[in-house]
Write a protein that binds this DNA or RNA. Structure first.
Lengths: 127, 127
DNA sequence: CCGCATCCCTTTGGATACTG
DNA sequence: CAGTATCCAAAGGGATGCGG
């Protein structure tokens, strides 16, 4: 189980859920997978600007352990040039509505600050 | 402005909102303030098991900067023994519903794991 | 009573190089 | 192609002691 260490102090279901999306890349992965449905490792990496292999692989493992993401591997017989596809599970897909709600809340309560941020909505546009 | 450093990479309103509740104590503070409405610093500290002054004060400042929390100070004339009360702003209060939704989602998708956690719901009971 | 200053440890995120 | 191994920097969280 690849889980964040803050886990040790999780006290309730709310924190258990938030722990699944605490990382820098978790919600971004959900966003692009919700948009593209299925992506190979390299394509996913290219969608996530500036992510490194170390971090992406670790985050994916964590999300697979949390059953937010499916990992499907093809060409298992062929040792070289593997083909792996990632997609959201139903559980992962069900999180999208919650993320949308949070995004809407954020827009409602933006006091006109960070206008550039709230105009150009890189990630949310993929919902 | 007391903000977390991940801020530097925030890319959309969703991340802007999540950044306000990323810390270990942010949601717990919202929970207890939603339940008690108003708390003095020491009472708030006692409700939050094991929190230290450094962390609590820092988190409160961050949340005040994000306009989730009101800070009201009395006895400003009296130099010694200040009296400070914390409460949720309307913005902070409006987050409670979102946290409830996340908590509900978490319970729905708990695969029977961590039964103890999902039975005894320390923080959520305060909603 | 309500914190702040300082120091310290743990966790997270990342850069680089390499491999089946 | 899809990662892993190793090492490193930065940020978060905490313990202790002090101060208006």
């Amino acid at each position: 189980m690849y889980q964040r260490k803050l886990n040790a102090t999780i006290r309730c279901p709310l924190e258990h859920a938030l722990n699944m999306i605490r990382g820098k890349w978790n919600t971004r992965i959900i966003c692009v997978l919700s948009f593209y449905k299925t992506l190979r490792y390299t394509d996913l990496k290219n969608e996530l600007i500036d992510v490194t292999d170390t971090v992406l692989a670790t985050t994916l493992k964590e999300m697979i352990a949390n059953k937010l993401i499916n990992r499907r591997q093809y060409n298992e017989d062929n040792e070289i040039l593997p083909r792996v596809e990632y997609s959201l599970t139903d559980k992962g897909q069900s999180l999208v509505q919650i993320l949308e709600n949070i995004c809407s809340w954020s827009k409602v309560y933006s006091d006109g600050e960070n206008e550039d941020l709230f105009k150009q909505c890189h990630t949310c546009e993929h919902y």
